[in-house]
């Protein structure tokens, strides 16, 4: 199913070359942000993760197949009014960040989920996405401060009017492209559940409430924390010039 959709996308527009999903082996994930003070380590089962973000061309193929997700038909419940607003028309791609090979943005969590379901996949969980990103970073030579500097530069000035094409940069050691620095990616459980005594903060975070979630007070951990925090403050309808996604797939274990 997934490959036929890709094929259809290629027929419609000269989109990016399809990339095989990458198998992420199961293993223990050291939580970089202590959402639960008693859980420092979580076991993550093996899964597949797209090597790169979903492109405009691929998302266009999807909304052609499932017209309910076209921007002039989508119910307001499922996206903010600027859903896919950068496309010149509902079924037409454009230039710069609206070009066929750029990561799709201005998509809500609902739309991202629907896309992945149509490929026989799903959104990665927060832990899966962060685990894959951490595994790849551990296998690379990037220092903590290089990582932090790249992220803070991107957070404050994402240059989202002219995003680079998907997979334009070399993949990391695991074969994943652009885990950081191109767009922020939707995950299935993006909203944090933070507790303060018997009160639970559904959206995640209030003024100054940071230190108790940080295993270390260095810029590397703050760079990661900022991703957790801002992702959590979006809502499922949010659509912005920096919000995109990639899909995950279950590993079918032999019986």
């Amino acid at each position: 199913m997934r490959h036929s959709i890709f094929f259809a996308a290629l027929l419609i527009a000269s989109g990016p070359v399809p990339a095989e999903p990458v198998r992420i082996d199961g293993g223990y994930f050291q939580q970089p942000i202590l959402l639960d003070e008693n859980t420092r380590e979580t076991y993550i089962d093996a899964f597949y993760l797209d090597a790169r973000q979903v492109s405009n061309a691929e998302f266009l193929a999807f909304v052609r197949q499932e017209p309910a997700w076209q921007r002039d038909r989508i119910p307001r419940l499922f996206a903010q009014p600027n859903y896919l607003k950068h496309w010149p028309q509902a079924l037409t791609l454009g230039q710069r960040s609206a070009a066929d090979d750029r990561p799709v943005t201005y998509v809500s969590w609902y739309a991202a989920r629907a896309y992945c379901a149509a490929q026989g996949g799903r959104l990665p969980s927060l832990d899966e996405w962060e685990y894959a990103a951490a595994l790849q970073r551990n296998a690379s030579n990037q220092s903590g401060s290089e990582y932090a500097h790249a992220l803070f530069a991107w957070y404050t000035n994402p240059k989202s009017r002219d995003l680079a094409p998907v997979a334009a940069t070399e993949p990391g050691p695991l074969g994943l492209h652009d885990m950081h620095g191109l767009v922020l990616e939707w995950v299935e459980d993006f909203q944090l559940l933070l507790t303060q005594g018997d009160k639970t903060d559904l959206l995640g975070g209030s003024c100054g409430d940071t230190a108790r979630f940080m295993p270390k007070f260095d810029e590397e951990h703050y760079a990661t924390f900022f991703r957790y925090q801002s992702r959590s403050n979006f809502n499922a309808r949010s659509t912005t010039s920096t919000l995109g996604f990639r899909c995950a797939y279950n590993v079918e274990e032999p019986l």
Partner: peptide
């Protein structure tokens, strides 16, 4: 630079988790 933000007026006496809550872009 699309980022969730909030507003906290020190001049106001209110419950911060209500009035000073964070809103997403848009």
């Amino acid at each position: 630079s699309p980022v969730p933000h909030s507003m906290d007026f020190h001049s106001g006496t209110v419950a911060a988790d209500d009035k000073w809550r964070t809103i997403a872009p848009g």
